[in-house]
Design a protein around this nucleic acid. Structure first.
Lengths: 232, 232
DNA sequence: CGACGCATTGACAGGGCTCAATTTAAGTGG
DNA sequence: CCACTTAAATTGAGCCCTGTCAATGCGTCG
């Protein structure tokens, strides 16, 4: 298998493969399987046996957990270059979350044996994996604190800024979230309802902080939003 | 240094040292430093440089994060045999949380170099550490889901049950939480206020589910509490 | 015994959820 | 390219859960 051109872009951004030479990368990529996902398609379900981990090449995965009565909570989004289920795959455990494609998604997957093999071949991988895990725990702890200590509007502000930093695209109007992000998604991400999100974005729209339409959000005044999320 | 008698008890319960022979344990313990903490004393603060990780021998550590305006959130409690800051110490990062002694606490600490040394000497340690990390992430994700999807009363029920399973002591009356746990603690753990916790425990008291006093909680009917936390 | 910290309880208000009714926008097929 | 369908978003009204504030009770410890 020969890696297509656009792989290098995702890989160069990857936290997991930082500090690994192009030659090694080629080897690593060659050992994975290539998968394409349609919008909304699920890559794996919460509770399933974790037999593979995946690197996102193009598009975005949404990691979420489901609660009884259909309420969903979004744990995080996985951008190109980032990896999903890297930790779960090691222990042959079950996936603790569900992964869904937002838009068309391209990924590379490795099974458990291959991963263990790779780790022992490339020491840097283990270090990166540890770093990655630490970051995940910290991110979760931070969001946990926010969720319990802050009011909804501020949580939405922080969420939007976090997503903007991860997946923002500078345009003439401001910074646009470069994937489809509905009110429902934001609500699930911040632990609120679509109604509150809608009202909030509405009010920010009037202030000129954001422009938002159907599954599309542009932050026109990031500075103001940061101020709001921190001050007062 | 010769390990005191009661060390073996904590160690035998330890997730981290599972599958490691007594002889090796003696070596590992000998390389750590022994620390005693007074009630309320802080072992490390959020943001400080993470220069050591610790195994709890006796008593309990409380891991928490602070929000502006003094609001605190409890991430978890660390019982005898469990370890704190194990991951943070590796990357020479800062502690993401604050550790406080609840009651008198005895711990053993290892610095970064020693930990790295130990890991390379005892392969099982690395595996255990990974397992431990996975468990931490899952626990956080679960609580995150609860926090965003469930009402306060049910969150308190779940919290109490979780703490009971971890640190419960069967007595004639029922299962008693074996360390001082104030209304404030429960509130910080569940993301609510002492007033709501107090009202809730009061009402459960009338139903005969719990008996609670000053920093002391006994679950007299665990079954009923489980039912409440899951049903409806 | 007095003082301090923890816990309880009541009254009140408000943030945000629920529900229902529209409006808007994006497909889709003829 | 336009009607039609369908999903997403908006907006208003009402209310309930839970946070806030204040007063009081009670257990513990010096």
């Amino acid at each position: 298998m020969n890696a297509p051109e656009h792989y290098s872009d995702a890989l160069s951004r990857s936290e997991l493969f930082a500090g690994i030479s192009p030659k090694m990368l080629k080897d690593i990529l060659g050992r994975g399987i290539h998968v394409q996902l349609k919008p909304g398609e699920k890559l794996f379900h919460e509770g399933e046996h974790a037999d593979r981990c995946y690197l996102v090449i193009k598009g975005r995965l949404k990691l979420s957990k489901l609660h009884e009565q259909g309420k969903e909570i979004i744990i995080r989004y996985i951008d190109p270059g980032a990896i999903a289920a890297a930790i779960a795959v090691f222990k042959g455990k079950r996936y603790p979350v569900t992964a869904t494609a937002t838009g068309a998604v391209e990924i590379v997957g490795w099974d458990r044996d291959t991963m263990i093999n790779l780790i022992s071949s490339y020491g840097q991988l283990a270090v990166n994996l540890l770093q990655f895990t630490i970051d995940r725990i910290e991110e979760l702890q931070n969001r946990f604190l926010e969720l319990s200590a802050e009011q909804v509007e501020r949580r939405i502000a922080r969420a939007l800024l976090r997503i903007m930093r991860q997946s923002g695209l500078k345009t003439g109007e401001g910074v646009e979230i470069e994937f489809k992000l509905s009110r429902q998604d934001l609500a699930d991400y911040t632990g609120t309802t679509i109604y509150t999100v809608s009202r909030t974005l509405s009010s920010w729209g009037k202030k000129g902080w954001v422009k938002s339409g159907r599954q599309r959000i542009v932050i026109t005044d990031p500075h103001a939003l940061v101020g709001f999320s921190e001050n007062n």
